[in-house]
Simulated scan of single mutants.
Amino acid sequence: MFGYRVPAPNEALLISGKKQRGDDALQFKIVTGHGVFVIPIFSRASRLTLAMQEAEVVEDCFTQQGLTLGVQAVIAFKVGDDHESIAAAARRFQGDQSQMPTLVGRIFSGHLRSIIGSMTVEAIIREQQTLGEAILDASKAEMGKIGLAVDSLQISSIDDKGAGYIAALAAPHQAAVNQAAKIAQAAADQASAKAQQESARNQAEYSRQTAVARAQFQAEIDQAEQKASQAGPLAAAQAQQAVLAEQALVAQRNAELREAQLIAEIVKPAEAEAAATRTLARAQADATKMSAEAAAAEGRIALDQLVIKQLPEMLRAAAEGLQGANLTVLDGADGLSGVVASLAGQGLALLDSVRNGLAGQVADPAPASTTNGSTPDWTEPEQRALTN
């Protein structure tokens, strides 16, 4: 948007050209973190970096013993976040912000020479952290005046410029270290030799135990082979016996199956045929009996029919017999009833006699001779009965 300016997160926007209210000393406005309208012609906006920067210091310094040491250090710094620091840095570096590292290097070089001059080489080498803190404390006030803040200071190297002093200081320690290293190496060699000897003993013991185990294993194999060779015939005989026993079982099973087959094929059909024959004979006997009974019944029926046919003739003959008879009835009607009853009783007796005679003839189916071809020959009792 025309006239609207927004600073980056690591920048401060400086707006000048218009008098700021509330602060006569500050002739420009500082904007961070948000945008602002800048009126062209009447106002001007510039930017001041708030990013982290580095300054390197390489300086020859004299120690308390008068020895020259070459010291290298790296300082990490930036413009302070408060408006006072931003205003102080803007007044000094707004025209050329690249001058910040140069000025910081010069400030720390002076404080570095001053502090190293009050210390011995041994102290400098041994207490580098203390040296760095002392330099920061000495430069804090001066850095604050120009609006800069130091985040860290690291001493990267210290050199005695070839004098050998530092090497001489390190020699006893190096010798002690070398001696300790030699002792440690000797102890390590001794331990290694001992370990090799122990390993050799262990290897020999392992070889011995392996040989013993192999011998025992071979003996067990030989014994097993011997037992196997001896057990071969016995095992074959046992196997043969098992085969024979199995064959006997199979033969028995086959016999049982054959027996069941014979029963199913011969015995069962014979039994069924005999049962059928018996059933048929019984049925024929029953039929014969029923035929005989039917014939007897038919004979009785024929006899009764014959008697019935002869009964009128018999009654007629009886009447003719009584026609010329001289009967005297003494008791009147009662006497007449008795005569009639007597005649009826004789008639019934005569009827039974005739029936029995005819029944015998029916039972004996032999043909009877006839005199005239139609009337049968009666026996004497039958003729007597019929004529009386």
Rank of each mutant, 00 (worst) to 15 (best):
200 A>W: 07
251 A>Y: 06
234 L>Q: 11
217 F>N: 14
202 N>M: 09
215 A>G: 12
215 A>E: 12
252 Q>R: 15
217 F>Q: 15
243 V>C: 09
244 L>D: 06
225 E>D: 13
205 E>W: 03
187 A>T: 11
190 Q>W: 04
228 A>V: 01
201 R>F: 05
203 Q>T: 09
214 R>N: 14
207 S>M: 09
253 R>K: 15
248 A>L: 14
180 A>T: 01
219 A>Y: 00
206 Y>L: 09
244 L>M: 13
189 D>T: 08
250 V>A: 12
204 A>P: 00
214 R>L: 07
232 G>L: 15
184 A>G: 02
173 H>V: 09
215 A>S: 13
200 A>Y: 07
181 A>D: 02
223 Q>H: 06
208 R>Y: 02
211 A>Y: 01
204 A>K: 05
171 A>K: 08
230 Q>H: 10
205 E>S: 04
227 K>A: 15
177 V>A: 14
199 S>C: 11
237 A>N: 10
207 S>H: 05
241 Q>R: 11
212 V>K: 08
241 Q>V: 12
221 I>E: 10
231 A>H: 09
178 N>R: 12
198 E>I: 05
195 A>P: 00
226 Q>V: 13
184 A>W: 01
171 A>N: 02
202 N>Y: 13
197 Q>S: 14
246 E>G: 13
219 A>L: 10
223 Q>G: 06
218 Q>L: 10
233 P>C: 01
228 A>T: 04
187 A>W: 08
184 A>P: 00
219 A>T: 06
240 Q>C: 03
181 A>L: 08
197 Q>M: 07
230 Q>E: 10
183 I>H: 04
196 Q>L: 15
188 A>Y: 05
214 R>T: 08
196 Q>P: 00
219 A>F: 00
192 S>T: 14
182 K>F: 01
250 V>S: 11
170 A>K: 06
229 S>P: 00
183 I>L: 08
193 A>C: 02
174 Q>E: 10
249 L>D: 10
249 L>T: 13
177 V>W: 11
230 Q>P: 00
211 A>R: 03
214 R>D: 04
237 A>T: 10
191 A>D: 05
189 D>L: 11
191 A>Y: 00
198 E>Y: 05
230 Q>K: 09
229 S>T: 08
246 E>Q: 15
175 A>R: 13
170 A>L: 08
175 A>D: 05
207 S>C: 02
233 P>E: 00
229 S>K: 13
212 V>Q: 03
201 R>Q: 10
205 E>I: 00
229 S>R: 15
195 A>Q: 04
191 A>S: 03
169 L>W: 01
239 A>T: 03
187 A>R: 10
224 A>V: 02
237 A>M: 13
213 A>R: 09
249 L>G: 14
169 L>I: 07
186 A>D: 05
186 A>C: 03
177 V>M: 11
191 A>L: 08
197 Q>P: 01
231 A>T: 05
196 Q>F: 06
205 E>R: 07
172 P>A: 03
191 A>Q: 11
246 E>D: 06
242 A>Y: 09
182 K>Q: 07
212 V>A: 10
217 F>A: 15
174 Q>W: 00
239 A>V: 02
187 A>E: 15
209 Q>A: 05
183 I>R: 08
176 A>F: 02
253 R>W: 09
213 A>S: 08
236 A>D: 09
252 Q>I: 13
206 Y>G: 04
223 Q>L: 07
230 Q>S: 03
191 A>K: 08
238 Q>D: 04
245 A>P: 00
183 I>Q: 13
220 E>W: 01
215 A>Y: 03
219 A>D: 05
208 R>W: 02
212 V>Y: 05
